Simulated assay, not measured.
Amino acid sequence: MKHLVACLPLAACALAHAQSSVTLYGAVDSALTYTNNQGGKSAVQTYSGGRAGDKFGMRGVEDLGSNLKAIFVLEAGFSVETGAFQPANTLFGRQAFVGLSGDWGNVYLGRQYSMTNDYFVPLSTSFLFAGGLGATLGDIDGSWNYNKISNVIKYESPVYRGFNYSAMLSLGGTPGDFSHDRTYGAGAQYVNGGLTLAGAYMNMRTPATSIFGAGASPVADAAFTNPVTNPIFQNYVTATSQQVLGGGAKYVYGRSQWSFLYSNVRFLDIVRTASNRTAPANAAFNNYQLNYAFNFTPATMGGVAWQYSASPGGHYNSLEAGTAYLFSKSTYVYGMTIWQHASGVDSTGKQAVADLFGLSPSSNSNQLALRVGLRKLF
């Protein structure tokens, strides 16, 4: 009894025999990128996370008995080129959550990815071979990894005959305004052999602050500091809400893999500030991806893709190709080339220009990027 009383303040004794483990993991990825047009000039530059983001993190699992486990993840993003955190001014800006896992499913509390990230990414060009360069119009639909959401409560169901689903809610935390920065969504997936079907929905209130990182909410006719520089949807992020709905399929047969992804993105009740007075009340995007990959050997793959997006006044087509060679299960080199063509007008009312994710906009309707890099997992 003396031993039990002595450690009650630390809540340690009752769990002394629990089985637990903590794993350190991460990735370091550096690339060289050539772009034919960024603001009217060609560029050759190094790029951090050319295939996928640089990161390091810790994940832990503790067996609590009766098939119940406590889990946590702390994951930070960083630039291998500068050493700076990404997103800026955050420590665990990618993920930071704690939860419980049991026969009934999993519950996570904290900063996490969106539903579209969870369910769209495995079907996307970005996941297959193109990284951020293959993201849909600056990752407008969250099919890459741009959307990390704070204050999330997420539930994941167990897998039953290949089917599982999940739902999430993020509370904005603004006194007197429950809907401000509130985010919610749901997703589902079915896997049977080589076939995967998946779909997801996200509703994000006040996306300027909840998703894109603005310092203050937009106010009608007032000045607004817009954190988004992508002209494709720049003038729409002052919307009262952003909705994303979509899904697709993947089929693996032998050494081949096909995937298709569709997403519909809507900016609703757009607030007209001093900088976007001509913005429409609502704006919708329809996005399509068609991908194919082939494993030439166990260590070598190649892929091609086509993307098309229709915005309120513009059209965007992309042709993409990529390859990777694995030195080992944790180290590989990769190469990719992406060409985008824009037509019509963009969200600012100007002639639409090409703008690949992670680069500066082109000065005209075309942009070509070539990237080679090395990625090391640990």
Results as ranks from 00 to 15, higher is better:
A18S: 15
V22H: 06
T23E: 15
T23I: 13
G26L: 04
A27Y: 04
T33A: 08
G39F: 08
A43C: 08
Q45C: 08
T46P: 01
Y47P: 00
G53M: 08
D54Y: 05
V61Y: 13
E62C: 14
L64R: 11
L64W: 06
K69D: 05
F78L: 06
T90S: 11
G93E: 05
G93R: 04
L100C: 06
D103H: 12
W104S: 14
G105D: 06
N106E: 15
N106M: 13
Y113A: 09
M115P: 00
F120I: 06
L133Q: 10
L137E: 11
I140K: 00
G142W: 01
S150I: 06
S157C: 07
N164F: 04
Y165T: 12
L169H: 09
S170L: 02
D177T: 10
R182W: 00
A188Q: 04
A188Y: 02
Q189G: 00
A200M: 07
P207Y: 02
T209S: 13
A216W: 08
A220T: 14
N226P: 06
N226L: 09
P227A: 09
T229V: 12
Q234H: 11
T238K: 01
T240D: 15
S241T: 13
A249D: 02
K250V: 03
Q257K: 13
R266I: 11
D269V: 11
T278F: 13
T278C: 02
F294A: 05
N295L: 12
T297Q: 01
P298L: 03
G302K: 00
S309V: 11
H315D: 14
A321E: 05
T323D: 08
L326R: 14
Y334T: 06
G335D: 07
G335T: 10
T337G: 14
A354H: 02
D355G: 00
L356R: 01
R371I: 00
L377K: 07
